[in-house]
């Protein structure tokens, strides 16, 4: 898990990565979060490759080297199971999410897989129209370029706000 961290050396943008690859990845990253904001979870899952993983990991666990996550989906099946449970069984605070991303950092591109990193904040609004910063963190994405377009091979959500305000129901 420690290799997910910035330390020891800060990673820099790889300027040799072709612009069209970067743009395709940027579109995918943006689309994936807009799908979450709009609760289009069927469309969100389409952003993932069929061998995809999705994890939400508290930053404090990464700092110590502990493996526990708050959401741990080792396969697309487990991601789908979580969405199904969310849809038919989970109860949570009615709300709207809005993701705010900054620019994506493109770190490497080898064997058709792009490594990218994007900071995010999610502002959560109640149905009474009150908004607050919900969580902040960054995505560690591995994006595979397929014939059908770019897909997430893995997304690790590193959660700076690991003392979570109440609960996480909708994926981040």
């Amino acid at each position: 898990m420690r290799d997910l961290m910035d330390k020891p050396a800060a990673r820099k943008t790889d300027r040799s990565i072709p612009m069209e690859v970067r743009q395709a990845a940027a579109d995918l990253i943006m689309d994936s979060t807009v799908h979450l904001d709009r609760m289009e979870l069927d469309a969100w899952i389409e952003c993932f490759d069929e061998t995809a993983e999705y994890h939400v990991i508290p930053r404090e666990n990464l700092e110590v080297g502990y493996g526990a996550a708050v959401i741990r989906c080792n396969s697309l099946d487990v991601i789908k199971d979580r969405l199904m449970v969310l849809d038919v069984s989970s109860k949570y605070n009615p709300h709207w999410d809005r993701h705010f991303l900054n620019g994506t950092q493109y770190l490497s591109y080898e064997d058709g897989i792009l490594e990218a990193r994007t900071n995010f904040m999610i502002v959560q609004s109640s149905l009474e129209g009150f908004s607050k910063l919900f969580v902040a963190g960054h995505y560690e994405d591995k994006i595979v370029m397929t014939d059908a377009g770019p897909r997430l091979r893995s997304r690790v959500v590193v959660l700076d706000t690991f003392s979570v305000p109440n609960l996480i129901a909708v994926p981040l």
Partner: peptide, 27 residues
Amino acid sequence: MVQHRLNQANMVGPAGLISMEDGEALE
């Protein structure tokens, strides 16, 4: 077994499939 325990931790915590509701009920 460690991996199994880590996977089952999906059920607990703030995003737990059998625990996220408690925070909401209490609030």
